[in-house]
Amino acid sequence: MPQQRRTSSHTTINPGSVWLDGLAPTGRRSMRSLLNLSAAILRHNATADSHDWSALRYVHVATIRATLAEQGYAVATVNMVLAALKGVAQTAFNLGQMDADALARIKAVKGVRGDSEVAGRALSREEVRLLLDATKAHPHKSRQKRDRAILLTLCGAGLRAGELVALETRDYDVATRTLTIRQGKGRKKRVVVVSPVVGKALAVWIKARAGNDCLFCRIHRSGSVTGQPLTTAGLAGILRQLQETAQISPFTPHDLRRTFITRLLEQGADLNIVRQLAGHSDISTTALYDRRSATTLIHASSALRF
């Protein structure tokens, strides 16, 4: 049943929920994440389910577009967000919650142009080190341990944002350093044996948040660990805080996945092995994540011997 939003005078069906319910199950979760991200930009702590989408207007959609582009999100991601917002607006119109003029103005927001194949970047080793140092700046030890584990898991296992927030405690075996991603894209399960430094960070965090089912939980301002899992919007906020503390160039959560793939390729890992670790169906997709520098390419070609 679509979620309902209760107002002072009547109960209104949430057009965001109606639109999501009309999607195929395989795409619903990712689109919900995009709506969560959009809602959080418009109002602190807002979600796809809590936000009043009937009040969506041109200025809101334009603000979301500009914010995502400024934060370095891929062209394809920004345009997918715009398509989702336009779909929700159309649903609001169909439900009688939005007039034709407001809908037309929202649909007039243009997509972002650019080469989606070269979107995003891989972080340098120095940037990752600065981010790890930034995790130590928080006054609460629980935040330090969680944020370090999050950062190293993203860089050291190549998880998508949605995959990370869906992890449960049972998905990580401390003894074997084996991380099982049960809710991968397309519902494909994969297994990654993480490096010792990643494994140590996860083990330290797991000990600190004992008793919770979710692997990465929200933390109160007081420093106490809750039993509530992170959202993708919450994860983006954590990484943004670390980026500002570390004073490095902006990056997206997905850039840490690009970092994982690029580092493996730099170390000589076989492209097909990297594909499997990243959970890609097509090896050509993995190749798009390759952000090795021009110097690396020059060295490879100049070192060729016959």
Rank of each mutant, 00 (worst) to 15 (best):
I13K: 07
C214G: 08
T169A: 13
R105F: 00
N94L: 01
N45I: 03
L242R: 04
T180S: 13
D101F: 04
L37W: 04
T67E: 15
R177G: 03
T135K: 06
R209F: 04
T262K: 00
V197M: 08
A66S: 15
V78A: 14
A48E: 15
G223I: 01
A46T: 02
Q144F: 02
V197H: 13
R177C: 05
A108R: 14
R57K: 11
G22M: 03
R57N: 13
S33L: 06
V78C: 10
R29V: 13
D49M: 08
Q90W: 04
F306K: 13
R182I: 04
A108L: 06
Y289S: 01
L202W: 11
D290S: 01
A175F: 05
L68A: 05
R143M: 03
D213P: 10
V81S: 14
Q267Y: 04
T252H: 01
S8I: 12
R263S: 02
D290N: 01
A74D: 13
L215M: 15
Y58D: 11
V81I: 06
R187P: 07
I181D: 08
A208P: 06
G87R: 02
R28L: 05
R105D: 07
L167K: 01
P196M: 03
S124L: 04
V274D: 02
V198N: 09
E168Q: 13
K145R: 12
A233G: 12
S8Y: 05
H51W: 13
L95Y: 10
E168C: 07
A100G: 12
C214M: 09
R187H: 12
T11H: 12
T285R: 00
T286Q: 00
G162I: 00
V78G: 09
A104Q: 13
M98E: 03
L20N: 11
I206D: 14
G111E: 11
V192E: 11
I219R: 03
T135P: 12
G156M: 07
A39N: 08
K107M: 05
L230S: 10
S281K: 01
S249N: 11
L164K: 07
V81N: 10
G16M: 03
D99E: 09
N212A: 12
L179M: 02
A210K: 14
G120I: 00
A303L: 01
V59A: 12
K188W: 00
T67C: 08
A236N: 14
A137W: 04
R29D: 10
R148F: 02
R113M: 05
T232G: 12
Q4F: 10
L131D: 08
T245C: 08
L215E: 09
V198P: 11
A157E: 08
G158F: 01
D270F: 00
A203V: 04
V81H: 09
P196S: 09
V198T: 15
S9G: 14
P15S: 10
L239G: 07
G22H: 07
A137E: 14
V198G: 10
E266M: 01
G111F: 02
S284T: 06
Q97D: 08
I238E: 09
F93H: 15
